[in-house]
Design a protein around this nucleic acid. Sequence first.
DNA 1: ATAATAATAGTAACCATTACTAATAGATAG
DNA 2: CTATCTATTAGTAATGGTTACTATTATTAT
Lengths: 130, 130
Amino acid sequence: MSKRYSAQKMMIENALKQLDHPTASEVYEYIRESYPNISLGTVYRNLGLMAEAGEILRIPSGDSPDRFDINAHEHLHVTCTKCGKVFDAESEKLEDVLKKIDRFLQESTGVYIEERTMLFQGVCSNCRKQ
Amino acid sequence: MSKRYSAQKMMIENALKQLDHPTASEVYEYIRESYPNISLGTVYRNLGLMAEAGEILRIPSGDSPDRFDINAHEHLHVTCTKCGKVFDAESEKLEDVLKKIDRFLQESTGVYIEERTMLFQGVCSNCRKQ
DNA sequence: ATAATAATAGTAACCATTACTAATAGATAG
DNA sequence: CTATCTATTAGTAATGGTTACTATTATTAT
C-alpha cells in the first residue's frame, strides 16, 4: 500500500548528491561502480517519480538527455554549450519577475499558467578564456 | 554552391502558413494530401535548416514533438495542456524583462547567454469552461 | 546540352525514454 | 516466525521523434 524505501532509491538519492546535475545515465553509471546490478530502468523510474513528487527537479534540455537536480527549490538553470556544465541561479527578485511574466501571459492569452520550462544557454567564463 | 529553391521547401513554407504551429508530422501529412511523395525526412531537414537560418521558429516541447512557427520574430509560446493549442505572446515590455533576466544570469553565473528556451504551459480559458 | 552538385525519396539507424514481465524482497497479518 | 501480499526490481523489448545514409532526381552555371 504505502511506498517502500528501496536500497536502489537511496543509492539514486546519494548519486544525485555526489554528482553535479547528472543525467539518468550518469546516475546509472555512478551506482554501477558499487552495485553493478542496478537497472537503467529503475534509475529512470525513480528519478521520474521523485521529480513528480517534487523531491528533485528535472532539467529538460531538448536535444540532449534530461538532467536532474537534488535541489528541489525552484530556480533557474544556465548551461554552457562548450563544456556542458550547469549553473544554478536563484533570487527573490528573479522569482518576482517570473511571476509577473506569468500574470502577463495569463492576461494576454487567457491561459492559466501552471508550469514553466526555461533553459538558458551560453558560454561560461572558463570556456570563454580559451 | 548556393542554395536551391526546391518545390518541396515552398510547400513546407506554405504548410506553415496554413497550419497553426504544426509539428513536422503535421506539415508532412498536410503536404501529402496534394503531393503524396513528399518525404518526412525532407520535411524535417527543411524545417531544421529554416529554423537555423532564423526564417522560422522551433518550439521545443520536451515530451511531445517540436512545433514550428512561421513567425520568426522573437516571442513567447504558451501551450494548453488540455487541447494542445499554442498561443503567442509578444510585447516590448516582455522583451525588456527577458533581456534583464539575461543580464542578471550573466552576472550571477558568468555565462554569456546566447540562447533562451522557454515554454509556458497551462489550461486555456476555453478548456477551463468545461 | 552538359557537367557539377544541391536536394530529394525512401529507408535504416539512433537514442533517450517507457513498457513489460517474471523474479525479488520488504512489509503486514496471523 | 512463517506465509502472504504486493511494491519494486532487473533485464529486455518496444516506442517514437529525429537524424543519417544512399542512390536518384533536378536545378543552376558553364
